[in-house]
């Protein structure tokens, strides 16, 4: 039975392209994906542009300009399912560091001609602007999770993307806890799993790339980090990276400013 392939679009807002590249990075599976969907709009992969509406839209990047604020509504209108991918799209990304500072000061420090720069004072997540069907966390996203979400969406089942702690992944993979066995600072207990336990495997604490897990008791963890020897600035810095503007992390970092 010949049926029309669902149309997939990949949209970019303020971001580094790393998450879109995760899709291209699915080397072994990319052909399988291409057999199931039509890449209708994916500038990283093809110049061809097929017009909307689209069955699945993957949205990368945060909203940092007035133009983007406008454009995301257009994307939403043309998309049946809208999935945000990566820390920028789900939490504002590293560029949300500006949310904690004076943007004009940044602009005049960085650019030779500050007058050419037009930007919003805050970097915000896509879900702050339009309804989002599913958020895929990470900086960058994990390709296994991306394939899982695409596969699940195509057959119409619920994707398996747990929102439990990174610690659970450590324990399930047999990784020795770097916080307990070495006294290293780790955000794993308050971070959503998904990366594949990269940092603890390389003998480092988790940096929180996948953002806060559900019920993220950051103040209890911050107190423990203090006992492990981190001063206020170090604690604030730890919570203020790729998911700096995610609410539990933002609130915690401000406490230690």
């Amino acid at each position: 039975m010949a049926h029309k392939k669902p149309k997939l679009a990949v949209w970019k807002f303020s971001s580094c392209d790393g998450c879109q590249l995760s899709l291209l990075g699915c080397e072994d599976e990319l052909l399988d994906v291409a057999e199931q969907v039509e890449f209708a709009y994916f500038l990283e992969a093809t110049r061809a542009k097929v017009s909307g509406p689209y069955d699945i839209s993957l949205v990368e990047g945060s909203i940092t300009t007035a133009e983007e604020e406008e454009r995301i509504h257009q994307v939403r209108k043309q998309s049946k399912v809208l999935i945000t991918i990566g820390a920028c799209a789900t939490a504002g990304g590293i560029q949300a560091l500006k949310n904690f500072a004076d943007v004009d000061e940044f602009i005049s420090a960085v650019y030779a001609h500050p007058e050419y720069i037009k930007t919003l004072s805050k970097s915000t997540a896509i879900a702050d602007h339009v309804p989002v069907d599913l958020e895929l966390r990470g900086c960058p996203i994990n390709k296994v999770q991306l394939l899982e979400v695409l596969g699940a969406t195509l057959v119409g089942r619920k994707p398996n993307v747990p929102n439990h702690s990174q610690c659970m992944e450590c324990k399930m993979s047999g990784q020795v806890c770097v916080m307990v066995a070495k006294g290293q600072a780790c955000l794993g207990p308050v971070t959503q799993a998904g990366c594949g336990t990269i940092c603890p495997t390389f003998d480092r604490g988790c940096y929180g790339c996948f953002g806060p897990k559900e019920l993220s008791n950051t103040s209890a963890l911050a107190a423990r980090l203090g006992e492990l020897g981190l001063d206020s600035k170090q604690r604030s810095d730890l919570f203020r990276t790729f998911n700096a503007a995610a609410e539990p992390f933002a609130k915690e970092s401000v406490k230690h400013d």
Binding site: D32, Q36, G151, N160, H164, S165, M168, M172, P189, N217
Partner: peptide, 25 residues
């Protein structure tokens, strides 16, 4: 922290969940 470490290291805790996965095709 609701991190679940205690339950996963506990040698008697037996809870599990099941999930289904499908191939892309």
């Amino acid at each position: 922290l609701d991190c679940a470490n205690c339950t996963l290291v506990c040698p008697t805790c037996f809870c599990s969940t099941t999930s289904d996965s499908t191939s892309l095709d």
